[in-house]
């Protein structure tokens, strides 16, 4: 028996044995760590450093690092990420050897109804737009009118969505991280992507005939074509009774905003 009865040794020996065991493991771990180091793919590291780092999950992956890995493996598409800036996306595309054709986008709510749009019924039920939608397609007379019950507000983690005093949703761009959860959550699909540089947008999604739209909503697009005729660049067309802006041509002069009788083409600042 090596253990001495004298007190100092009774402490020193166990401590020494433990220290030796620990040291052996420390050396082993250090050795293994050095020898068997798994090199993370250089591409993945670079891509991840260029992604926004918002970890919003808007792309459908667990976070930016999972998305970076999927990108490097060619499983994901760069356009799935809304939060990364265009400059960084270009750099990522260069690393991946692909082309970034998407441009920086932002989200707008394409409805101008709210209190200007008639209600079909008074809703006293539980919940938000999603549950209202189940009851005869929502309370608004317009089949694609914002119901203003705040499903997007609930889904936004950054307090960017709100229901204004006009009764429809709006998005504060300074808070928006472009995660896209609101767009997915809206049962009417009213939250749409437009280029971030766009100055104007059509705040209506209704394809019904002008007369029908007029009958229930004062703010809806009636497809009159005033914007189309007054646009100096020919950027606006009326498709299925709804004005559509071609942002490749739009110069943001605001002629359409001034001429629209329903005031449903809006400038972004509003």
């Amino acid at each position: 028996m090596l253990l001495s009865t004298s007190l100092p040794l009774a402490i020193v020996i166990p401590a020494a044995v433990l220290i030796v065991i620990a040291a052996v493991f420390a050396v082993l771990l250090a050795f293994l760590g050095r020898k068997l180091e798994v090199k993370r793919d250089e591409k993945v590291v670079q891509v991840e450093s260029l992604l926004s780092g918002a970890n919003c999950g808007g792309c459908g992956y667990a976070g930016c690092s999972a998305f970076a890995e999927a990108l490097a493996n060619g499983k994901a598409d760069l356009s799935a990420c809304n939060a990364t800036s265009k400059a960084n996306k270009d750099k990522i595309a260069a690393i991946l050897g692909t082309v970034n054709d998407g441009e920086e986008m932002s989200f707008v709510v394409c409805c101008n109804g709210g209190s200007a749009c008639e209600d079909k019924y008074d809703y006293h039920g539980y919940g938000d737009c999603a549950s209202m939608e189940l009851l005869a397609g929502g309370r608004k007379a317009c089949p694609v009118g914002c119901m203003g019950a705040g499903t997007c507000v609930k889904h936004c983690d950054h307090h960017a969505c709100s229901i204004g005093d006009k009764g429809y949703a709006s998005i504060r761009e300074d808070r928006c991280t472009l995660c896209g959860k609101c767009a997915k959550s809206c049962p009417k699909g009213l939250i749409k992507k437009i280029p971030a540089r766009a100055k104007v947008y059509v705040a209506c999604s209704n394809h019904a005939k002008g007369k029908d739209v007029r009958s229930y909503c004062k703010g809806g697009c009636i497809g009159c074509g005033m914007c189309m005729r007054n646009c100096p660049e020919g950027a606006i067309t009326v498709v299925d009774n709804l004005a559509v802006i071609d942002y490749a041509k739009c110069i943001g002069c605001g002629a359409c905003v001034a001429k629209c009788p329903s005031k449903c083409i809006k400038t972004r600042e509003e």
Binding site: M1, L2, L3, I13, P14, V17, L18, I21
Partner: peptide
């Protein structure tokens, strides 16, 4: 091979 040998079972 270590603990019993050094009489350190209590550790």
């Amino acid at each position: 091979f270590v603990l019993v040998k050094f009489g350190l079972e209590y550790m």
